[in-house]
Design a protein around this nucleic acid. Sequence first.
DNA 1: CATTCGTGAAGACGAAT
DNA 2: ATTCGATTTCACGAATG
Length: 318
Amino acid sequence: MTDVSLWNASRDDGFRTSCPVCGNRLIGDSEKGEQVCPTCGYVTVAPADSGPEWKAMDLEEKNKRVRVGSPTTLALHDFGLTTEISRTMRDSHGKYLDPAMRATVEKMRKWQSRTRTINSEERGLSNVLSKISELCEALNLPDNVAETAAQIYRTSAKMKVAKSKSILGMTAATVYLACRKCGVSRTLKEVARAAGMEKGSVARYFRLVLKEVEKEYVPPPSVEKYISKLINKSQIDPRVERLALTLSRKTSDSKISSGKAPAGLAAAYVYLSSVMEGVHLPQREVAESAEVTEVTVRNRCREILDNFVIRQEFVAVK
DNA sequence: CATTCGTGAAGACGAAT
DNA sequence: ATTCGATTTCACGAATG
């Protein structure tokens, strides 16, 4: 198992203890990636985590070591740098503060810590929200899906559904739900892979969110959507797409599509029409792009052929 | 040889109990 | 929470070209 967790990845390369300019001891958190010299203001340029390297997600195997997490600087709304007001009784020149000033500083300190604790929930929220948009980006999802996902998470947080749940699980689930609500065809499998999670575990979170927050069944994207997706994915002759779509439409309101994985059915249509158009893609290829097995493709094909008589004129006319 | 087709065992999932 | 039925996957071998 490769390193899956970036959440608390240490970034101690470039870590220093003393300021290279004035030699003073640096303060700051090595995990946050920044340190500052209290005297001269020098800030270490710790190697910044430029983000997960999953931008160019390829279709296939490359993403074995997908990691999850965000650059600390973006994930934390305060950039991980908080201001502390110390208890010293001297000002920056070393002079003692007069009692009036001391009282003022004391008040400031109190209020600062109060506002910080008040904001803690808000901070957690913004944290998750940024993870959601990251996941959406990794999946090349349009903005409206990210918006929807954020909306879903907000309400689920409000309803306390997200309480003591895995952040990763919740993000994956909300993103997947958002895909379905927006009619964007991403499979559970794809979302799970991009999030670096088990499919089953994403499914559990998804069901939870669906039941508790959405409360209404959101149907998976239509077979047509899957067909177009397949075609786009593997650069297939547009004629095949048109044929597959008409085929699918002609047979849509039928029992064969109920309870079946839409991706498998879509693959069957694509395969069938590729044969009819004389392109003849191998089952293997179609099945692979649809992320189903050849067996499933075959079974769907058999059902289609069993239930419908496909004549060339029939498809050629419309 | 590559591709297709069919099968049984095993796992996963949803619905019903 | 467990059981049950349908679906999907896996692993194989046979047929086809």
